[in-house]
Simulated assay, not measured.
Amino acid sequence: MPGPEGFDYEVRGGEVVISHHGRRATVLRGAAAARFLADVEDDDEQELMARVTGNYRRGNERTAKNHPRNAGR
């Protein structure tokens, strides 16, 4: 399964702006921004930004929705 891609971040003053395919996904401020900048040096940037923005789904939502155990939900 391919990993996340298309994420980019920019530091603006005390903020970190994370975008996905050129569109702003989230803005981190304060302690969250500092924690992100410390973690981005050690971890995979794309994976970290996907976790921070909540964009971690891989396209199997429709399959799960149609599964028999989820019928009637």
Rank of each mutant, 00 (worst) to 15 (best):
M1W: 11
M1P: 09
P2E: 06
P2C: 07
P2Y: 09
G3V: 10
G3F: 03
G3Y: 01
P4L: 11
E5Y: 14
E5N: 12
G6C: 03
G6T: 03
F7Y: 10
F7H: 01
F7M: 01
D8W: 00
D8R: 05
V11G: 01
V11K: 06
V11A: 02
V11F: 02
R12I: 08
G13S: 03
G13M: 00
G13V: 00
G13N: 03
E15G: 01
E15C: 04
V16A: 00
V17N: 06
V17M: 11
S19G: 08
S19H: 08
S19T: 15
H20T: 02
H20F: 12
H20C: 07
H21Q: 10
H21F: 08
G22F: 09
G22M: 07
R23V: 12
R23G: 02
A25K: 06
A25V: 03
A25C: 04
T26A: 15
V27L: 13
V27E: 09
L28D: 00
R29C: 10
R29T: 15
G30N: 14
G30Q: 13
A31L: 09
A32L: 08
A32V: 04
A32P: 02
A32R: 11
A34N: 06
A34M: 03
A34K: 04
A34Q: 06
R35H: 12
R35L: 13
L37Y: 09
L37Q: 08
L37D: 10
L37E: 09
L37V: 11
A38T: 07
A38Q: 08
D39Q: 05
D39E: 14
D39K: 00
V40A: 05
V40N: 06
E41D: 05
E41Q: 06
D42S: 07
D43R: 00
D43G: 00
D43M: 05
D44V: 04
E45P: 00
Q46P: 05
E47A: 13
L48T: 14
L48A: 15
M49C: 12
M49D: 11
A50T: 13
A50M: 08
A50L: 09
A50Y: 10
R51W: 10
R51A: 14
G54P: 09
N55D: 02
Y56I: 15
Y56G: 15
R57L: 15
R58W: 05
R58F: 08
G59L: 11
N60W: 07
R62E: 14
R62A: 15
T63M: 06
T63W: 05
A64M: 14
A64H: 12
N66I: 05
N66T: 08
H67Y: 08
H67P: 02
P68T: 04
P68E: 00
P68H: 03
P68F: 04
P68Y: 02
R69T: 09
R69L: 11
N70R: 14
N70C: 13
A71K: 05
A71D: 07
G72E: 10
G72F: 11
R73W: 14
R73P: 13
R73Y: 14
R73F: 15
